[in-house]
């Protein structure tokens, strides 16, 4: 085809914006964001932290879970402006700089607790936070499944994720975790 004249670039959108400063995975940043921008979109598309995934944007699937000021939360149900001043951790923060996997990541690998990997970062962040927050986690079948409920997975059927939670508890030396 003959070369076409390129279309004019669109006019800028008219969203109101605000400046926010926050710490992401230990790094302080300041950015101007649209006030309606979801934290999930902010992390992924403005910071390039694409390990946080988006699966439903209504809080049901859990793919977008990150740790906000020490508590796991849905980044799709949080506005970026709400995170002003917050300390945020994403899946990219888990492994050591030399690539050594976090105990929960390692357990997922050993137990084949992931297939397509799309839901995985959400499970990891929920679980990492659960172990941080819960000195004596309930490692019964029902206890583990209750903690996992809140994250949907369509590939694994969950059983290997349950096994990975037990394995992670072992790797983390959680009391009573030894199988």
């Amino acid at each position: 085809m003959s070369k076409k004249i390129r279309s004019a670039a669109p006019k800028a959108a008219t969203d109101s914006t605000a400046e926010i400063s926050l710490t992401i995975n230990g790094e302080a940043i300041t950015r101007e964001v649209s006030t309606r921008r979801l934290l999930s979109d902010f992390l992924r598309h403005e910071l390039g932290l694409t390990g946080t995934h988006v699966g439903c944007e209504h809080g049901v699937c859990g793919c977008c879970t990150v740790i906000i000021d020490g508590w796991a939360g849905r980044s799709c149900l949080t506005l970026a402006v709400q995170a002003d001043g917050a300390d945020i951790r994403t899946v990219e923060s888990l492994a050591a700089d030399d690539g050594t996997l976090h105990a929960v990541q390692q357990a997922f690998h050993e137990c084949h607790a992931l297939q397509c990997g799309f839901c995985t970062p959400g499970f990891l962040m929920s679980l990492v936070n659960y172990f941080e927050r819960t000195p004596s986690p309930d490692l019964s079948e029902d206890g583990i499944r209750s903690v996992l409920a809140g994250n949907l997975c369509r590939c694994t059927g969950y059983q290997n994720i349950v096994a990975a939670v037990r394995r992670a508890a072992e790797l983390l030396n959680v009391e009573g975790a030894k199988s």
Binding site: R36, L38, E57, H58, G59, R74, C76, L77, T78, L79, V81, Q82
Partner: peptide, 25 residues
């Protein structure tokens, strides 16, 4: 806007269109 766990889904689905959100956190 407090925890946002009910409000944000409503907004994401565009079931509500408030002129203004008041963040009380």
């Amino acid at each position: 806007l407090a925890g946002g766990q009910s409000l944000l889904p409503t907004l994401n689905f565009r079931l509500g269109a408030p002129d203004s959100l008041i963040d009380i956190s």
